[in-house]
Design a protein around this nucleic acid. Structure first.
Lengths: 338, 338
DNA sequence: TTGAAAGCGCTAACAT
DNA sequence: ATGTTAGCGCTTTCAA
């Protein structure tokens, strides 16, 4: 019943109409009479015909595929974002072509070139930055590109993030309120704009509340590295931090594990811990981690809107969208003593 | 420097060769002289030319895209698998076109149709099953399909799983060894083959060790539902289970949270808990969960090998691969009393 | 090794 | 509303 390769010509023959009639039947908004459409549909169903998206794309110049570049799939924030993105784009008839990178710059370059070969209608780059040459190439080719959870100094590049500076600031404010005296910071990968902005906001917030950074270590957005960073901050120290802002939740969980299970410290009695992202695990009672929410829902919505708008209108000016997220105070910074 | 749409014709003109020469230069294994290739490459670089994958696919009938259907991206096992899959396929010049579903059967159907329109070279379906009609359509179209972490009764469908029956059995064995008397089970979504096999293995293992299932509830592979299931098993009960096998780790974490923080029970003193998958979080000290490892690495390797082999050779017989994974005993089932 | 020519399956003018 | 025709950018015979 189902043939191997059925083309619109086969359907046209069976339905007794022209090949273009078949094409029109499967083109939303084309002018076909009901009678013709019915005949075509009948023939198509009988033959098991489905239009070839690739051939269509070749002509229209639109593939309805969007390239998605992502590096840190072990950080729950990204699978969550990916799922929402995929769902929303799917609803609009777009699909994600996935490219994973290990975040080395050279790899990103090759990946983008390959992406462009696939004639993707746009690129969403999550958790990676593009060098200027690359960005310019996409711009020149007229392929819209939106950074997700990263910004670039180059303002011609659109981006969607949370307000990382404000988020870092609000943690400092919170630390000041609960009486932290020796605030420390565990940084993410230092090449990342999110890392930079969160730290800058935190430092500024501390300063404005009469505090200064007591210590700092680098966790590189990586679970293991974050553990090392924690040990550095606490082992063989006579004076230790009493508050820790960790650049993202993913690392904060590792940090809490080391503090509790290696160093035998109590959170929040001995040290308070705050993270960033508010991923699902943060609210699990085992961690109950104070965090700045990155509203994946709204960030994804903004990304979808921007990307689709840029596809529609290539002359749209680039957008730098920073979405405010609330501080979610939880037990990791809430002493029971009070 | 970089034009908007550069075709092989432009490059040919600039290089002073025929368009086919350009095509050959970019076709691995085609016969081109070094001199021609150099001229072409120079012209291509100058113009910023990149071959159009879509046009190529239209002719070759190979898109080098593989459709990936996935439902449970909040269960860490899937992002982890997705990342590995993407990396390995990328290394072979393939890329994943993502389709997310919320696991309603009707949605899967539409999705597969759409996938086929994109002329994907194969389909990998993670955590979903296909009805027979759908499977037959793919088979008839010659599109290889591999189920990942699911099996189907229809043996014409290839699949890669862990040995779920053996895994469930090994948990029962372990429970027997540590002296569990009232083993209970929290099931996943009951339509899933993994759920069915894990439970069957568990029950059989219990029976062979002189035990029988004390109680059972359904968690549907969902965090919240699993919490409810736990409450059902423990609230208002005079006799409670002393050992809990939860159909996957993702649910087991929710179960442990309820036991500890809602019901004030100690794990493993009051009740032991075991999961399945051995996702990263299982080894975090906050949970330290006994689990059956699903070796994502080897499962992905098997999947890639199978998929690529089927693309190469359409007549390859279907494979049902079940990969053995060890039981990883951790503190959640290891009493300190001993 | 190279170029000319014929399509891959479809859309989009253009006529009718 | 429908059929005819000309490509989209490329690969692949076929001759040379």
């Amino acid at each position: 019943m189902v043939a191997c390769k059925v083309t619109s010509v086969d359907v046209a023959a069976k339905a007794g109409v022209s090949q273009s009639a078949v094409s029109r039947t499967f083109t939303p908004g084309a002018s076909v009479s009901l009678r013709t459409a019915e005949k075509v549909h009948a023939a198509a169903t009988a033959l098991g015909y489905r239009p070839n998206s690739l051939a269509r794309s070749l002509i229209t110049g639109k593939s309805r595929m969007i390239g998605f570049i992502v590096a840190y799939l072990d950080n729950q924030f990204y699978p969550e974002s990916l799922q929402k993105l995929s769902q929303q784009l799917q609803a609009q008839g777009y699909h994600l072509l996935i490219f994973t990178v290990d975040n080395t710059q050279s790899q990103v370059e090759n990946i983008v070139e390959e992406l462009l070969n696939y004639q993707v209608d746009a690129i969403i780059a999550a958790s990676v930055s593009l060098n200027t040459a690359l960005a310019e190439r996409c711009l020149a080719l007229g392929v819209p590109i939106v950074l997700y959870n990263r910004t670039q100094d180059d303002t011609r590049i659109s981006s969607v993030t949370s307000d990382n500076h404000a988020g870092g600031y609000s943690i400092a404010e919170h630390f000041s309120t609960i009486g932290i005296r020796r605030p420390a910071y565990i940084a993410g990968w230092e090449g990342a704009s999110t890392q930079r902005d969160r730290e800058a906001g935190f430092i500024e917030g501390l300063r404005n509340h009469g505090l200064e950074l007591f210590d700092r270590a680098v966790g590189g957005f990586d679970h293991e590295t974050a553990k090392q960073a924690t040990r550095m901050l606490f082992c063989d120290k006579t004076i230790k931090p009493d508050g820790l802002f960790v650049a993202n939740d993913h690392m904060a969980f590792a940090v809490m594990d080391v503090l509790r299970y290696e160093l035998g410290m109590d959170i929040p009695e001995d040290v308070v811990v705050a993270g960033y992202d508010d991923v699902a695990i943060a609210s699990w009672p085992a961690y109950d981690l104070t965090s700045v929410r990155q509203p994946a829902n709204r960030m994804v919505e903004a990304t979808v809107t921007t990307v689709l708008a840029m596809i529609e209108n290539p002359d749209m000016p680039p957008q730098q969208i920073a979405i405010q997220g609330p501080l979610i105070p939880r037990r990791s910074t809430t002493s029971m003593r009070a």
